[in-house]
């Protein structure tokens, strides 16, 4: 047990600092992914001239491995587009791009699941298109897709371990630094793995509870 105390408990500040960076990157990436996914989805459904662009972007983000995308955003984008200007920004941007592709498809499925009769009913009740969208479509889509959105957050957390490769000081990278100092990987890496597993487990548990609550309260089949 002495090793655990020396290598993990006494290094808790270092690990905690890393964990904070992980949470920060994931939170920013998650928020950006929801906005990006929404924009891609709306472009695909409601802006015919941009439809093809949206489809190509969605498919590209979804069908490129996150590690490849990360390297591409971190090393090619700054030269071509002038941003991201730091590895921290490249990290969350790559995570957000990937997830925005998945979320766009989630939102689309949610929107298309709203029966067209409801839209027609809203129209004949005198609602404008914008009103129909915000009052009839959005609440139902938000409820139905909430569990998948939470699930996407766990994907972001899992993929975020890779940003240590581009030297962002997240939990993974902090623990690897400790391993390089002490040359004793057993305790440090096991503890790191346990932290990640517990964190992801907690998020998906929260997602499950949320889905159950929504189902009970609004009688919606949350899947």
């Amino acid at each position: 047990m002495g090793n655990w105390e020396r290598l993990v408990w006494n290094q808790r500040d270092v690990l905690l600092a890393g964990f904070v960076v992980t949470v920060e990157v994931c939170a920013i990436a998650f928020a950006a992914a929801i906005i990006g996914g929404l924009m891609l989805c709306l472009m695909r459904l409601y802006v015919p001239p941009l439809r093809l662009v949206a489809i190509v972007l969605i498919e590209f983000f979804r069908d490129t491995p996150i590690f490849v995308q990360l390297m591409w955003v971190a090393y090619v984008w700054p030269e071509v587009f002038g941003f991201p200007n730091s590895f921290f920004n490249a990290g969350w941007l790559a995570l957000a791009l990937q997830s925005s592709g998945y979320l766009a498809e989630t939102f689309r499925a949610g929107i298309e699941a709203v029966p067209s009769g409801q839209r027609e009913a809203a129209f004949s009740a005198g609602m404008s298109q914008a009103q129909t969208f915000t009052r009839i479509v959005v609440p139902q889509v938000a409820l139905a897709t909430a569990p998948s959105i939470v699930n996407q957050f766990t994907v972001i957390v899992k993929s975020s371990t890779l940003i240590s490769v581009i030297t962002v000081p997240d939990l993974m990278s902090q623990s690897q630094k400790l391993v390089n100092v002490w040359y004793e990987p057993i305790e440090i890496l096991t503890a790191t793995a346990a932290i990640y597993i517990a964190f992801v487990f907690a998020i998906s548990l929260a997602g499950k509870l949320l889905a159950d609550r929504l189902r009970q309260r609004y009688g919606l089949a949350a899947s």
Binding site: V157, S159, T161, V179, A193, I197, V200, F201, S204
Partner: peptide, 15 residues
């Protein structure tokens, strides 16, 4: 299911 694949890769390789 809850383990990130990169940490598992590192764990299996080094621990």
């Amino acid at each position: 299911r809850n383990a990130p694949d990169y940490i598992m890769l590192v764990w299996v390789h080094f621990v």
